[in-house]
């Protein structure tokens, strides 16, 4: 099992594990609207498309912070609680690189950016773990 895990951490590529169907939101969306979009799409995070072209990220955790601050979901904007300049990963990164990066920086998501800066997906800690488990259970 340890050998399989080690092999899978090196073999699996970020591009193959990431969710391709990424919810993108605007920095000026109210967080209440963003919450509805997340629930409809069954996701816990979204990429924020900013004018400078460097994607931000906003997740359930950020909504929690907003509520803790007493923010009104109908009037508080995504940009007030997003993480600007999210950590990006290349689709060619290995699962191990992605896992180490997430754990070291204490992030649960990586924005997958391909050539020409195109957003190709979003990799969550859950995607990563599901892929590793699939590989180990599959025994390949």
């Amino acid at each position: 099992m340890a050998e399989l895990t080690r092999a899978a951490l090196e073999d699996l590529a970020v591009g193959a594990m990431a969710s391709r169907d990424v919810l993108c939101v605007d920095p000026a969306h109210p967080i209440g609207r963003m919450a509805r979009m997340m629930v409809e799409r069954k996701v816990g995070s979204a990429v924020v498309l900013t004018e400078d072209g460097r994607p931000g990220i906003i997740a359930e955790r950020d909504l929690l912070r907003a509520l803790a601050d007493g923010a009104d979901p109908t009037s508080t904007m995504v940009e007030s609680y997003m993480t600007a300049s999210a950590i990006t990963a290349s689709p060619a990164w290995s699962a191990g690189e992605a896992a180490r990066c997430m754990l070291a920086r204490n992030f649960r998501h990586l924005v997958v950016v391909g050539e020409q800066g195109r957003i190709e997906g979003l990799l969550s800690i859950r995607d990563l773990f599901a892929a590793l488990l699939g590989r180990i259970d599959g025994g390949t």
Binding site: G32, A35, M38, G44, A59, E60, L63, L64, L67
Partner: peptide, 8 residues
């Protein structure tokens, strides 16, 4: 956090 998201 997921429950909080759904509440909002």
């Amino acid at each position: 956090e997921r429950d909080v998201l759904q509440a909002v």
